[in-house]
Design a protein around this nucleic acid. Structure first.
Lengths: 213, 213
DNA sequence: TTCACTTTCTATCATTCGACAGAAAGGGGT
DNA sequence: ACCCCTTTCTGTCGAATGATAGAAAGTGAA
């Protein structure tokens, strides 16, 4: 089967693959950078390939097209959030503490990476039905938030979850404009917006977070 | 000089100008709709012209290009917010009440219109320096928020304003996903996130809002 | 009517787009 | 050595892109 050793075939034209993870990863990295800065429609397959260090036609060996690159980026971005959410839902700490941890975790994910990959969430082109798989996962994440908010005893969990997500998601725009608030700060604000006392969650939250791995 | 009566010259090919405001307004309306749904790079001058009911080349008679259309849309969108903010800063009601009113006003503006025009704020292409005039106005608005937050006695007005704006701006994404929270609800949450009591602001806020016109 | 002006059109330009076909270049297994 | 497979390339396609030039079609005032 010749398991992908990622360095077979004709050698790469430029020795740019510094991460050494293979061409496919290079394309994804290039897509993350370009889609975030130039937009989706503003990024041509040519530019995408050039940024990845390959020719335009070679792109089609790895992906069906631009939209396949974006979809994979999107799915890869929600997945860590979903996994953390699932872990936290199965726990039995106080709901407010778990919600705090989820907020911190997601805010960190959105703040991480060279180019804020969460920026992809904001692309208008995401309305296209080809990205429906992403929206499904995203809806699952929102459900997780709603479940935790409901467990906190908030009267309107739907609205509460929307407010909490608003604070967390805004990290994306904050990063775009310069510097973002500290994740812990956002998590505290999230509890405050639900009319909950953030002090105890902020105290025992870090331990829970460290326990997740 | 023949002041623009907006109906001179050769008659429009299609009688689509239902608003009757002239071709320029048609182009802006088409731009708002297309940029929000297809993105900036995803909208061609051809599509823009077609949606406005004119030919592609005629676009260049009214605007220097796509970017001029977007810039005018952006500036036209912040302006109402800035005017309301200026009015509220000159008032002498309690700061929390004025902040409440500003949040409600902006949330309403973002929720209004057929296509959420605030969606334009999220376009990645806005990083281009050609849109610098917009970012300046936008920074002024943030300063207004910060001033009001500071007047409320919050210890870190910069972070506070960022959190409040996060809640207000998220109306854009909420609309995109379906239905947005009520503006009053967001304003209350904004005060709560600052550890302020929203009850009195929610009580006397509507009167202030009605007084602005 | 004639003139100046505005608006909109058709036609065209070089460039770039996404996508495909097919060849070249290497590695690994036998 | 040979063959198979993967990777990457060059070359090319029709269609679409942004932009310009110049003509046609209308208005209102002199």
């Amino acid at each position: 089967m010749a398991m992908a050793s990622a360095s077979t075939g004709r050698p790469r034209a430029s020795g740019s693959s510094l991460t050494g993870q293979g061409t496919r990863a290079d394309i994804l990295a290039a897509g993350a950078a370009l889609f975030c800065t130039e937009g989706y429609g503003g990024t041509s397959t040519h530019a995408l390939a050039a940024a990845a260090g390959i020719r335009q036609a070679s792109l089609y060996h790895y992906f069906g097209g631009k939209q396949a690159v974006l979809l994979e980026l999107l799915l890869g971005t929600v997945q860590p959030s979903l996994e953390t959410a699932a872990q936290l839902l199965a726990r039995d700490e106080h709901p407010a503490v778990r919600l705090w941890a989820l907020c911190v975790s997601d805010a960190r994910l959105l703040a991480a990476g060279e180019h804020s990959i969460g920026s992809l969430y904001l692309l208008p082109e995401l309305a296209d039905e080809r990205f429906a798989p992403f929206h499904e996962r995203r809806a699952e994440l929102e459900t997780a938030y709603r479940t935790l908010v409901a467990a906190c005893g908030v009267d309107d969990p739907g609205a509460g979850a929307a407010l909490v997500l608003a604070l967390v998601e805004n990290v994306i725009l904050q990063r775009r404009r310069g510097a973002a608030l500290a994740p812990e700060r956002i998590a505290e604000a999230a509890l405050r917006v639900l009319a909950l006392d953030p002090s105890e969650a902020a105290a025992s939250g870090p331990a829970l977070l460290a326990d997740l791995g």
